[in-house]
């Protein structure tokens, strides 16, 4: 384990709901080193998605400190957080969250647009990212012309296109069948092997098996933190039919 990329200390998240406030995170302290592949597990309502949103700078903690890649993220402005989301992390969602009626290539170009990368360089980087996830032949397809697995790979290409330090995935296989899930996990493992830190949230134990470290949560707290030998996902050969 190298330098901690994600450094959470006593992070809390409280939602004010009427008289009783809901403590979604109740003092979480977690350090993830560079090059780790962490699976966060837990039942629904355990706070794992809330934690993921805070780690991904989509949400801000109520208390505690969060240092991401050496920068103190808690207390940043909305614009600064946006820049962090753009350059430091790449987020993959359960529901893919691609722009509809927009080609795969343009979806992948989106983070580069906001990073100020223009013209031919942007097109090339987006094409490269799609080739890395095995979608080099589907550049101009729209999301509704792609299968679930293919859409999720477009989303992964979008997450990696700006060379982030960390890939965050919230239930990335939640909307996919088991065969496609393994293909997607193979991509994550491939990225991890190139040195990118991967953190994913899942409630499926067999998905967590592909990670090198499993963190379990319950009621907004860390329950266990186990390092393991990851199970190798069958590498996706070319372009699977899914």
């Amino acid at each position: 384990m190298g330098e901690p990329v994600i450094d959470l200390t006593d992070v809390t998240k409280v939602y004010p709901t009427g008289d009783v406030s809901l403590r979604a995170l109740d003092g979480v302290t977690l350090r993830v080193g560079e090059g780790e592949f962490v699976a966060i597990m837990g039942s629904s309502g355990s706070g794992k998605s809330t934690l993921m949103n805070i780690v991904g700078c989509l949400d801000r903690p109520t208390g505690g400190t969060y240092i991401l890649a050496g920068r103190r993220v808690s207390g940043m402005s909305r614009a600064e957080l946006a820049r962090v989301r753009n350059r430091v992390v790449g987020f993959v969602f359960q529901q893919f969250n691609l722009l509809s009626r927009t080609s795969a290539l343009e979806n992948v170009e989106l983070p580069l647009e906001y990073a100020g990368v223009a013209g031919r360089a942007r097109r090339k980087r987006a094409t490269d990212a799609l080739q890395r996830v095995g979608l080099g032949q589907r550049l101009h397809h729209h999301p509704n012309q792609l299968s679930g697995g293919q859409q999720q790979r477009v989303a992964i290409a979008r997450a990696i296109v700006n060379d982030p330090k960390v890939i965050l995935a919230d239930e990335p296989t939640g909307a996919l069948d088991s065969r496609t899930s393994v293909d997607v996990m193979a991509i994550f493992q491939g990225l991890w092997r190139t040195g990118i830190t991967v953190v994913l949230v899942t409630h499926e134990p067999d998905i967590a098996e592909f990670a090198s470290r499993v963190v379990t949560m319950k009621d907004g707290r860390l329950l266990s933190d186990v390092r393991q030998e990851p199970r190798a996902a069958a590498p996706a050969a070319g372009e699977p039919s899914s």
């Binding site: 614009a79 946006a82 969250n97 983070p111 906001y114």
Partner: peptide
């Protein structure tokens, strides 16, 4: 709204 959310998630700043 969802499109705005997606754009923000990949790094669109408020001024964008």
């Amino acid at each position: 709204t969802r499109e705005i959310g997606i754009r923000m998630a990949v790094g669109a700043e408020p001024h964008h």
